[in-house]
Structures are given as structure tokens and as C-alpha cells.
């Protein structure tokens, strides 16, 4: 057998394997991607909420993308409390101004950053929220102060369409 022959043979087999592998990859992708959010789910990206009836000191909970969103109209005391916290006391330092565009309105995902439970309103050691699952305490700005949760409650993308309507998403 000459030296060249096995090389050519090897090339043919390698090429077949390589092309075959590309095909398998191309087939696997649709099977994986079908589990991603579908077009109708993606289309429901935003929701509008009328907040005209919310009184100071009250929270409403609305559903957005299948998760609860807390919309709280904060009292002046709560705002003061949130603003007066020193950054070095925070586990996840964020200024209140960065979390609430209009200090009166706090909009955030009502999902504990520990393992996804919904925290309870007006509970806990910091006058904000308390997660009953594993005991995380959040302050009046929704920031984590005590307990196992690593991060502050997430603020989603939102905007005021007018004075009474908030568009989430």
C-alpha cells in the first residue's frame, strides 16, 4: 500500500464525520429552541397599569410576564427612611434615587432574589418587605438588608405614560 492512499481515505471519512456532525447540530437546535419563549409570549412584553386609585402607603400587585410587580405609593416618611440609609450598610448598594424615578412610586418585581418566593408587604425589621420562605428582610426601597437573599428586588423597565398610568416593560 502506498503512503498516499490511507491519507485520502482518512480525509473522506473525516469529511463525512464533520459534515454529519454539522447536520446533527442543525437538527438539535430547533429541538432546543422550541422550549424558549414563543412568539406569542414575547409579544406580551408590556402591560399598562392605572394607578390613580392607589393611596399613599398602599401597594398594588399586578401581573407582568407571569410574575407579580409591586407598585407602592410611598409616604414621605418611607421615602425619607429609604434615602437616609448609608451605602456601607447595604449588602447590594443602590441609591434610592436610582430605584425610584419618582420617589413617590416604587415599582419592582415582587420576587425574592433568594429563590423566587413573593415577599410579604409591610413586614420585616426594615418597614418594607419580608420573605416568609427563608427570612429575607427588605427595606422601604426594596433593598435586601438581612437574610439569605443576595440582591435587591429587581426594578423592571417602566415609564409613566401619564400621571395616572404606568407602562411596565
Amino acid at each position: 500500500m502506498s503512503d498516499k492512499k490511507p491519507k485520502r481515505r482518512e480525509f473522506l471519512f473525516t469529511a463525512s464525520y464533520a459534515v454529519g456532525a454539522v447536520g446533527v447540530g442543525a437538527v438539535v437546535w430547533p429541538l432546543v429552541d422550541q422550549m424558549n419563549p414563543d412568539a406569542s409570549v414575547k409579544a406580551l412584553a408590556s402591560t399598562e397599569v392605572d394607578v390613580s386609585s392607589v393611596k399613599p402607603g398602599n401597594t398594588i400587585t399586578v401581573l407582568w410576564r407571569g410574575k407579580p410587580v409591586f407598585i407602592r405609593r410611598r409616604t414621605p416618611e418611607e421615602i425619607l427612611e429609604a434615602k437616609s440609609v448609608k451605602m456601607e450598610d447595604l449588602k447590594h448598594p443602590e441609591k434610592d434615587e436610582d430605584r425610584a424615578k419618582d420617589p413617590e412610586w416604587l415599582v419592582m418585581l415582587g420576587v425574592c432574589t433568594h429563590l423566587g418566593c413573593v415577599p410579604l408587604n409591610d413586614k420585616g425589621d426594615y418597614d418594607g418587605w419580608f420573605c416568609p420562605c427563608h427570612g429575607s428582610h427588605y427595606d422601604t426601597s426594596g433593598r435586601i438588608r438581612k437574610g439569605p437573599a443576595p440582591l435587591n428586588m429587581e426594578v423592571p423597565k417602566y415609564e409613566f405614560v401619564n400621571a395616572n398610568t404606568i407602562k411596565i416593560g
Binding site: 481515505r9 463525512s16 454539522v22
Partner: peptide, 15 residues
């Protein structure tokens, strides 16, 4: 794609 792979496999088979 299938035609290309078929041709490759055909010659591999011949070998």
C-alpha cells in the same frame, strides 16, 4: 446538505 452528505457517505462506503 443531504445531497452533499449522501455523496460523501457513498464514496466512504465504496472505500
Amino acid at each position: 446538505y443531504l445531497i452533499i452528505l449522501t455523496i460523501l457517505v457513498y464514496f466512504s462506503m465504496k472505500k
